[in-house]
């Protein structure tokens, strides 16, 4: 596992100019934009960080590299676990960066850090991990190019399902917005706990799906 992590970090180094550019954009946005840019800066950095794990899968697939990779003392299980771990470590690290940039900016500009900033930061992190959980099985199943098309198709299905649910709710005279308001009105600590539990459940489910995809793959 450690060997794989080192390999991916070395591949990350190949893209260091890209990541420096991303960091500059984030810092620039934090300095020059208004307060609404808070969630953008944190979200942008976290997404770019965590999604590099998907790029690392493309790097592994390049030139049939997976065949050699799995002839090394690496199991398919440890490969999948490492990819999720790598995504979460990178996403988490970039999230910390983003949050620090925003906090620093607020301290310099306003002399205090608003509670909204902290809440926004803690909402973004699980969202980033859920996106990782959704995208990882697609990337492993379909690879780089086809994976993107598959993700777009999946998002369309989610979107259409949402519309259908809304239509059905309307037909049954169920007020969805009041349900969401009730959820939002719940005790904040319970809400955060629920978000964390749901995030980890989604990640675990995604991991199981990815593992079964990898076990069936032939190289």
């Amino acid at each position: 596992m450690k060997g794989l992590l080192i390999k991916d970090l070395k591949l990350l180094k190949v893209q260091k100019n890209f990541f420096l550019l991303i960091l500059c954009i984030a810092i620039g946005t934090a300095i020059f934009a208004n307060n609404t840019s808070v969630s953008f800066v944190i979200g942008f950095l976290s997404f770019v960080g965590t999604l590099f794990t998907l790029s690392s899968i493309s790097y592994d697939e390049f030139d049939n590299g997976n065949a050699f990779l799995f002839s090394l003392p690496i199991t398919r299980k440890s490969y999948v676990a490492e990819k999720y771990g790598f995504g979460m470590i990178l996403g988490g690290s970039f999230w910390v960066f983003g949050t620090l940039i925003v906090i620093l900016k607020e301290i310099i500009a306003n002399k205090y850090v608003s509670m909204d900033t902290i809440i926004a930061a803690f909402i973004i992190l699980p969202i980033v991990f859920v996106v990782l959980a959704v995208m990882m099985p697609f990337q492993l199943k379909f690879g780089g190019e086809k994976g993107r098309i598959a993700i777009i198709c999946a998002l369309m299905i989610v979107f259409i399902t949402g519309i259908i649910i809304t239509k059905i709710a309307n037909a049954l005279q169920i007020n969805l917005s009041s349900i969401f308001n009730q959820i939002a009105a719940l005790n904040k600590s319970i809400l955060i706990l629920a978000i964390i539990v749901v995030t980890f459940l989604v990640l675990f489910l995604s991991y199981r799906i990815s593992l079964s995809i990898m076990k069936k793959k032939e190289f």
């Binding site: 060997g3 080192i6 390999k7 591949l11 030139d63 065949a67 050699f68 002839s71 090394l72």
Partner: peptide, 28 residues
């Protein structure tokens, strides 16, 4: 697999890595 040494005709370490990059990978 620790006891196997493998060369595949159509596959190897990622071309984006250098020898210095793969040394710590092999070490671990």
């Amino acid at each position: 697999k620790q006891n196997l040494g493998v060369v595949l005709s159509d596959s190897g370490f990622s071309g984006y890595l250098s020898i210095n990059d793969i040394v710590p990978v092999l070490e671990h």
